[in-house]
Nucleic acid binder design. Structure first.
Length: 462
RNA sequence: GGAGAGGUGGCAGAGUGGUUGAAUGCAGCGGUCUUGAAAACCGCCGAGGAUUUGCGUCCUCCGUGGGUUCAAAUCCCACCCUCUCCGCCA
């Protein structure tokens, strides 16, 4: 589907921001934020915006629930206030000389009346608050205005292309054939399946080394040239972290969960542990922006992807990724998404791999994302671009879920951060792209210049 | 795995039953002073929520969940986490 010219222009220029005279207070008036106040005030606008991603917000249910909550809050708080007052009275009576028992007797009647209702009312209020929380946890982020309409990846809009796909004077093989020709067991899916079943790979020798070289190269580039700090994190996380970034509660099926009483999950992406570094914190403004880059393996069950990309290592249960994560002030997130996407693109440029950038349409947007650019690398065997990176602005959505805040010096108040992340890049897919784009007719593979320092100068895999 | 210590506001660190959301210090904010800055001095300064046009009033929160009590940061129980020592171990 071709983009209308007007829409294309809109995507390429930064959208105008809100008026500067508006106070920078986080929780009011901005319909892009899915917080409960915004939902009360601008329910219709938010519901409309969510429709763009194919989500139907049940406003009536929310409002009914919210009304019940209000009622329950008022009742339980009133009872609690009465009770506190009575018990303070006892203290004062004792202080002014009354016998302890006499003082107690004086309020016994009142207390009994209150207690008859108190527990029930508090219980009820808690239960309703819980319901509201559950409801809100299940609502995806609101797309920003410039996200194009559309239902699936066919409606994503190309923003730019870089590089020219190489023209081969022989029939290019796909990465599986290239890899298997590189020497016994260089890329071995059969022995991987002996160990772990489908969707795993074994690599040996120079290919394994190239894979590792990619990781080093990416980390060095991001730390050395793009201002990121390298970070090492756990690969097992608890449910709270996954709720924070949005994998839970809705996408538990996509995760590998540990057995045992400790409730731990294998991370599906470094986004989870790295973004959650800021959970439950109020960070100083002068530590922002925080830029983290992190190499981790990623584990995904790929439930619901049966039959998709079954050949090769494009879609694996375990793959390596170098991730970029940024925690920024709200007013910076929009520009940061452009910069971060550029950082991921820089890797492909250095590797001289042709790619294009698309902006995801509403229907293809991930649950927590407000806006996403996918970077797609050219794969000769498929004669098409395939996703190798996904860069998203989550605005304050994840921050709200994980209570990640910063102290705004202008207001002195804690406000929600904006979080972003992107793959920089998916290592397995980068390896696939190199094998396919750098293959030679004799079955060897040229090592991209940028990686040679990481391969002790090796120029070719044979 | 065994023994001990501890989890309090942005940070550090008091507080062991009563009006304490919490001393004090640092940081932060405002002011005095100064040509400016520093220093000094004075004042303000936890978070979330309900309600109100607003002033305000109220509720919750001292790791989590229970319990005792008229009243819990403070007492009791369980759990989680951190630290120290011992054992084991990459």
């Amino acid at each position: 589907m071709q983009p209308p010219a007007a829409l294309f222009a809109k995507l390429c220029t930064p959208a105008p921001r809100r008026p500067t005279d508006e106070s920078p207070t986080v929780s009011r008036g901005d319909p892009n934020m899915l917080d409960i106040r915004a939902l009360r005030q601008d329910g219709e606008a938010i519901a409309e915006a969510l429709r763009k991603r194919g989500y139907e917000l049940d406003l009536d249910a929310f409002r009914a629930l919210d009304a019940r909550r209000k009622d329950a809050d008022v009742r339980s708080q009133d009872l609690q206030a009465q009770r506190k007052k009575a018990s303070r009275e006892v203290g004062e009576l004792i202080k002014s000389g009354m016998e302890v028992d006499a003082a107690k007797a004086k309020v016994a009647e009142t207390l009994k009346e209150i207690d008859d209702q108190l527990d029930g009312e508090v219980e009820r209020a808690k239960a309703i608050q819980e319901q509201i929380r559950d409801f809100l946890m299940g609502v995806p982020n609101v797309p920003v205005e410039e996200v194009p309409a559309g239902s699936d990846e066919d409606d994503n809009v190309e923003v730019r292309q870089w590089g020219t796909p190489r023209s081969f004077d022989f029939e290019p093989k796909d990465h599986v054939d290239v890899g298997e020709n590189l020497g016994a067991g260089a890329l071995d899916f059969e022995r991987a399946s002996k160990l772990s079943g489908a969707r795993f790979a074994v690599m040996t020798g120079q290919l394994a080394r190239l894979h590792r070289a990619l990781i080093d190269f990416m980390l060095d580039t991001h730390t050395g040239e793009h201002g990121y700090q390298e970070v090492y994190v756990p690969y097992l996380v608890g449910p709270e972290a996954l709720r924070g970034t949005g994998q839970l509660p809705k996408f538990e099926d996509d995760l590998f969960k540990m057995r045992g009483e400790r409730e731990l999950y294998l991370i599906p992406t470094a986004e989870v542990p790295v973004t959650n570094l800021a959970a439950d914190e109020i960070v100083d403004a002068d530590t922002l922006p925080r830029r983290y880059t992190c190499h981790t393996p990623c584990f995904r069950s790929e439930a619901g992807s049966h039959g998709k990309d079954t050949r090769g290592m494009i879609r694996q249960h375990q793959f390596e990724k170098v991730e970029l994560v940024q925690l920024v002030r709200p007013e910076e997130s929009e520009a940061t998404l452009e910069a971060l996407t550029g950082h991921a693109e820089a890797i492909l440029k250095k590797l001289d791999l042709p790619y294009r950038v698309v902006v995801l349409c509403g229907g293809d947007l991930g649950f927590s994302a407000a806006k996403t650019y996918d970077i797609e690398v050219w794969l000769p065997s498929q004669q098409r671009y395939r996703e190798i990176s996904s860069c998203s602005n989550f605005r304050d959505y994840q921050a709200r879920r994980m209570q990640a805040r910063w102290r705004n010096p202008e207001t002195g108040k804690p406000e929600l951060l904006h979080t972003l992340n992107g793959s920089g890049l998916a290592v397995g897919r980068a390896l696939v792209a190199i094998l396919e784009n750098y293959q030679n007719e004799d079955g060897s593979v040229t090592v991209p210049e940028a990686l040679r320092p990481y391969m002790r100068g090796l120029e070719r895999l044979v």
